[in-house]
Design a protein around this nucleic acid. Structure first.
Length: 633
RNA sequence: GCUGAUGUAGCUCAGUCGGUAGAGCGCGUCCUUGGUAAGGACGAGGUCACCGGUUCGAAUCCGGUCAUCAGCUCCA
């Protein structure tokens, strides 16, 4: 059998699998090379390989290798659970980004003690180092096989596979699981693993289904990697915005208002700076701004379709026999602003922004610090455009998104969300709208994934996702193309032909919500915000009270420049004052002793670079001014 | 909303078998006037989340409620 291995043609015996081949090649391969790719696709090492194919032997460092490791770890987990609880029903157990999980249907929920016992049992399985063997069964035999094992969820999975699907199983010791692979060759390779948590999860991710018990874990090829990962997770917890919000005195959420965040004076500086930048940016890009009421008559929400599609999330109250709703979205208000007059095509595009406060009654379990709240400010905008303008306007909005995310040094991921089940409008509208967004993304050459059925009820959308400190992603920016609201509200503009035409609406945000964005920013910078955003930009501290007057003069000078300065005249040692300012992530610490007071200078310390030496006050002002104005990171 | 865990001082946490609470940091007063990440002494501060039950007696045991955390579902 001729096979091209790692780009080189080689002769092998018929019936060999990737593992055998890797074994024969041991001489020129690293011991770790145990994952393979066949004709570009990652395969199980124990799958048989025919001649005339391209085989690439990969190292464990490869992402596919880690994926196989974690998938094998999830099988070991399931095997261990079955040993301790033979009645457990297995659902699914995939590898995920940083680990793996397995879902079980059990009579009694798992306890932390059980988790520890499972981990011990897993160690036994790893020690035994059983080989994983792959085999295939025809559909009916496969169903019989899993039913004999008392695994109804597996039978359901097989029944839902397409009729031409290959149904494969992996066996290790006494345990066999339905699985497409690939896997590591034996359980002994799962050396460094840890079970992390227990959680509930609905069967097939549908809340109408039974809630199963999920065990999360992670696995690495060696102990050092695992320890390093666990250490990084611990470190990441220190960046948690809920913790930093309290430590840096920025914001908090109290029991008295679940999901309703409070912003303290320092947190308000962040908000105000973000809003100030937002207004400047939008003015530059041809936007105007409006403001619409927080509370509006229910009739408006019925007309917009929100009442039909979103009422579980709407807060409402009766006023003089009429029901009023706290707005969950800004668009109907914006539409009323649009409809106040007749528009000419000459006036379009109309780009109208609004920092709009919305209230949504989110499920209690969904709340998460500032990331998921019940009251937030969207940096919203509605673009009223002609159909011909769609592509250019979407591209224009994307460029603003890109500009803003780059300003903060964010990496972002783009998703295109298509028509959901519970939506309004015609197929034609949805197709046209989706094609419009797609066309813009393709023209921009932006990589994106498609999120089937996740659009807004009135139109498809492009979403921008940003990462938090532990790698969870949150949707921030969005561009939603809407041909439904203009129809429902009978909106129009007068075209060159003197006739009325239907405009198209673009709903969009860049920050998404000021609250969520501040949460992401706080974690991204670990509280050490760039100078232009820092709630306190400099802290002036004296060595003895003989420098107090000079310190006050310096404070006055910097304040006159519009800089945010704190004064620390306390009778404390300079080391202590520095420590506190450093822990508060103060960008600049300005130290004044006898020397500096005499010279009209100050000793400058940067939180990043440490002591920068003595600087004349006017030089300092210029330095800070330049850094603030450049919005440098 | 669902599954599990948690709730003690402003913060981080002890509190054994049921006998009405403790530390460190922070805060206040005083001493110390010092050169780039913690100077010292003394002091104040708690309806042990809330409601109910068991008990002679509950931070502790039981039930309920609320909130938080990790997920699921849903979403900016």
């Amino acid at each position: 059998m001729m096979l091209t291995v790692n780009g080189e043609a080689r002769e092998f015996r018929d019936g060999m699998n990737a593992l055998d081949i890797a074994g024969e090649m041991q001489g020129d391969l690293k011991k770790k090379a145990l994952i393979a790719r066949l004709d570009g696709e990652v395969i199980s090492l124990v799958a048989p390989i025919a001649g005339g194919k391209e085989l690439e032997i990969l190292g464990f460092e490869d992402a596919a290798g880690r994926h196989a490791l974690r998938h094998t770890a999830s099988h070991v987990l399931a095997q261990a659970v079955l040993r301790l609880n033979p009645k457990a029903k297995l659902a699914i157990g995939p590898a995920i980004d940083n680990g793996f999980y397995y879902d079980f249907d059990v009579e009694e929920p798992f306890t932390p003690d059980f988790l520890a016992a499972v981990e011990k049992e897993m160690q036994k399985i790893v020690k035994k180092n059983d080989r994983l063997e792959r085999f295939e069964l025809p559909r009916e035999e496969a169903i019989d096989f899993v039913e004999q094992q008392g695994q109804p969820y597996k039978a359901e999975l097989i029944r839902d596979l397409p009729s031409d699907a290959v149904i494969s199983f992996y066996r290790q010791g006494e345990f066999t699981d339905l699985c497409a692979g690939p896997h590591l060759p034996s359980t002994g390779k799962v050396k460094a693993f840890k079970l992390l948590s227990i959680a509930g999860a609905y069967w097939r991710g549908d809340e109408k289904n039974k809630m199963l018990q999920r065990i999360y874990g992670t696995a690495f090829f060696d102990k050092e990697e695992l320890d390093e990962y666990l250490r990084r997770m611990e470190e990441a917890k220190k960046r948690d915005h809920r913790r930093l919000g309290r430590e840096l005195d920025l914001f908090a959420i109290f029991d008295e208002g679940p999901g309703f965040p409070f912003f303290f004076p320092k947190g308000m500086v962040l908000r105000n700076e973000l809003e100030k930048y937002w207004r400047e940016l939008h003015a530059e890009h041809g936007y105007v701004e409006c403001r619409t009421p927080i509370m509006l008559n229910q009739h408006l929400w019925e007309e917009s379709g929100h009442w039909d599609h979103y009422k579980e999330n709407i807060y409402s109250t009766k006023i003089d026999d009429q029901t009023y709703c706290l707005k969950p979205m800004n668009c109907p208000g914006g539409i009323l602003v649009y409809k106040r007059k007749t528009w000419s095509y000459r006036e379009l595009p109309l780009r109208m922004g609004e920092l709009g406060i919305v209230h949504r009654h989110e499920l209690s379990g969904a709340m998460h610090g500032l990331m998921r709240v019940r009251c937030f400010t969207q940096d919203d905008a509605h673009l009223f455009i002609t159909p011909e303008m769609i592509k250019d306007e979407v591209i224009g909005v994307h460029r603003m998104d890109d500009l803003v995310y780059n300003l903060f040094g964010f990496k972002y991921r783009v998703e295109l969300s298509t028509r959901p089940e519970n939506s309004m409008g015609t197929d034609e509208m949805w197709e046209a709208a989706t094609a419009g967004l797609k066309g813009a993304l393709d023209e921009l050459g932006v990589p994106y994934t498609i999120n089937e059925g996740d659009g807004a009820f009135y139109g498809p959308k492009i979403d921008y996702h940003l990462e938090d400190s532990i790698g969870r992603t949150w949707q921030c920016g969005t561009i939603q193309l809407d041909m439904n609201m203009p129809e429902r509200f009978d909106m129009s503009y007068v075209g060159p032909d003197g006739e009325k035409h239907r405009p198209v609406m673009l709903h969009r945000t860049i920050y998404g919500s000021i609250e969520r964005f501040i949460g992401i920013l706080t974690e991204h910078f670990a509280g050490a915000f760039p100078l232009w955003l820092s709630p306190v930009q400099a802290r002036i501290m004296t060595i003895t009270n003989r420098a107090d007057d000079a310190a006050r003069a310096l404070e006055a000078r910097l304040t006159a420049e519009g800089m945010r300065v704190e004064l620390d005249l306390r009778n404390e040692k300079i080391g202590f004052k520095i420590r506190e300012a450093q822990m508060q992530k103060t960008p600049y610490m300005l130290v004044l002793g006898d020397k500096e007071a005499e010279q009209g200078a100050c000793a400058v310390r940067s939180r990043k670079e440490g002591d920068l030496g003595v600087m004349a006050v006017e030089d300092l002002v210029r330095k800070l001014r330049a850094e603030i104005d450049s919005k440098a990171l």
